[in-house]
Amino acid sequence: MKRLVPYPTVAGPVELAVVRVRVDDWTLPVQLVNTTDRIVALHTDRGTDWNEARLTVAVTTAPGALRPEHHGRDQACTAVLRERATNSVTAVRLHPDGSGAWTGEVSLDHTRHAGRVLLEAHLTATVDDVAGRIIGSTEPWNVDLEARTPTAVRTVRLVQVDFAADDRPELHRFRADPWHVDAWGDPPVLYLNKAFEGLVDLLHADASPTRDTVAAQVGVDVWSTLFLAALGAAAESGDDEPAVPGGWHGTVLKRMLPDVFPDLSPADALAEALKRRREGDAGFHALVLHAAGRPARLNPMLGGAIRALRRASESGR
């Protein structure tokens, strides 16, 4: 979103690099630090029993981008760790290293964080006699306590299980179903019923019209469920004017709303969807199924399957 700031800000990118990560007394291998997607994965083979992660960070601006006569005096750089889920914020002043970068160490306390922690840095200065003004910010990093690998890929979790299993009481009521979507978790979970004869084998088999048709059907179920769950999350935010929520809820809404209401902005589309959901009209349900078809790849999968079947029957003739 375009924004206007009433004083000069730093031109060009302000970049934050995570140089090294110490977890208690050992150092995280670089493979767990993804500098392209800005992700640190903290769930390692060493387990979750650690106290503190210390991140060495360096913040840089484009050479010559920061000018005192233009951007004010008392220039400083502060790194901030922030996690909404645990309401925890930690700010650390970084120090100029003499070569135009600010460096320092940010400490992440394990008891104060649970999932994805944002790490960003802000440049501040006294501008027009107002101290502590933000004149530049970095793109945030994600320090992910639950990630085993620093990938930006987020997917619905897949659990293949017997729905009648003793340790799955929550699935017992769905025991006769081929699959079940739990859209409450983060990430949401797709359960495939191993006790549903042939289903898991079919999905793992080589491509076939039947397999692709089933997969597309699963996809429509998953995405329509996710969409409704995301709408629910938006409704519960407690705002008078519901905003697109964060996390996977926001991702799903941003992806599907344009197909539900193509000529509305996301905010308007969300408001409209919430209204239609409250009114419970069937036309809305049809729109949701329509929108779910795209991420479920319904048209290509089903179209390809039908074509394959036709080809098979023609060649069999």
Binding site: V5, A76, T90, A91, R112, H122, T124, A131, R133, I134
Partner: peptide
């Protein structure tokens, strides 16, 4: 959105 309170009014480090 324009003031960094963390700089204007620094906090002490939590005694974890």
């Amino acid at each position: 959105s324009t003031l960094l309170y963390e700089v204007l009014a620094p906090d002490a480090e939590t005694d974890t």
